[in-house]
Computed example of a mutant assay.
Amino acid sequence: MKIQNLVCFTIGICLWANVGLADETFFRSIQQADLNTAEAILQKDASVLEARDKSGYTPLLIAAQQNNLPMMKLLLEQGANVNAMNHKRRDILNIAISVRNPEIARLALQAGADPTLVTSVYQGSALIYATHQAELEIMQMLIAAGAPLNRVNNLGWTALLEAAILGDGSENYASAVKLLLEAGADKNIADKKGKTPLNHAQDKGHQLLIELLDDSVEE
């Protein structure tokens, strides 16, 4: 038996999608962290791995949102798509940043998560988002995995600009900027108004960032 859910995509199109009752039961097992039921359902029908809820979350994305590493491991072992995104184009790496759990990012990257994906409605990347949140350990993992250092999102911001514009100038954001610079990020890329990360740091009086970004400041 099938039931119908209204699924709306980011491009503004809404479609009635058939969702099996087995999918509903599977989602419930994920939400309740019921490994035994989830595994039993998977043994009967592996297609439920890529079912979607009304927000476009797959079971794996829900497990990540809940910080449920054992469930994530089960789903990945059974072949869940580690690069799936929800309707807001958030992937599992973005979710790891949202819930501030480096272990999720580590497990996802080991399973083949792609740090080069264009993610979020801002058309950015997991690295840009991790920099915004000053999630240093996840930043290190993403950089080591080959995340693009100089991607520009649709706001006109790189990861360095994100740190300078949205960061509070604290030690954490200074460390985020240092990680990016040491990895080779270009500090001279300006935003849509022609302002560089240094310009933003100067405007805000964020001295720690100024010292890292200004070539004229002696180290």
Rank of each mutant, 00 (worst) to 15 (best):
Lys187Ser: 10
Gly194Tyr: 08
Ala159Arg: 01
Ser125Gln: 05
Gly156His: 02
Ala164Cys: 10
Lys204Glu: 02
Lys187Pro: 02
Ala174Pro: 03
Leu181Ile: 14
Thr196Met: 03
Asn154Arg: 14
Ser170Met: 13
Leu180Arg: 01
Asp203Phe: 03
Asp214Thr: 04
Leu179Trp: 09
Glu135Trp: 07
Lys187Glu: 13
Ala190Lys: 08
Leu179Asn: 02
Leu166Trp: 12
Asn188Phe: 10
Leu136Trp: 04
Asp191Pro: 06
Thr158Cys: 00
Ala134His: 01
Ile143Ala: 12
Asn172Trp: 12
Leu208Cys: 07
Leu166Asp: 14
Leu179Cys: 05
Ala159Trp: 01
Ile165Lys: 09
Lys178Trp: 08
Asp191Asn: 10
Pro197Glu: 06
Lys178Arg: 15
Tyr173Arg: 05
Ile128Asp: 02
His206Cys: 06
Leu161Thr: 09
Leu213Thr: 12
Leu160Ile: 07
Leu180Lys: 00
Met139Lys: 10
Tyr173His: 01
Pro197Phe: 08
Asn188Val: 00
Met141Cys: 10
Leu179Ser: 10
Ala183Tyr: 13
Asn150Pro: 00
Gly184Glu: 10
Leu213Ile: 01
Ala144Ser: 14
Ala144Gln: 14
Lys195Val: 00
Ala126Lys: 03
Ile165Trp: 11
Glu162Cys: 03
Asn199Gln: 14
Ala164Gly: 13
Asp191Arg: 08
Trp157Ser: 10
Thr131Tyr: 11
Ala164Asn: 05
Lys195Met: 12
Lys187Ala: 13
His206Val: 01
Tyr173Asn: 09
Ile165Gln: 06
Ala183Ser: 14
Lys204Gly: 08
His200Met: 01
Lys178Ile: 06
Ala185Pro: 14
Gln207Glu: 15
Pro148Val: 09
Leu209His: 03
Gly146Glu: 03
Ser125Lys: 03
Ala174Arg: 02
Ile210Glu: 10
Ile143Glu: 09
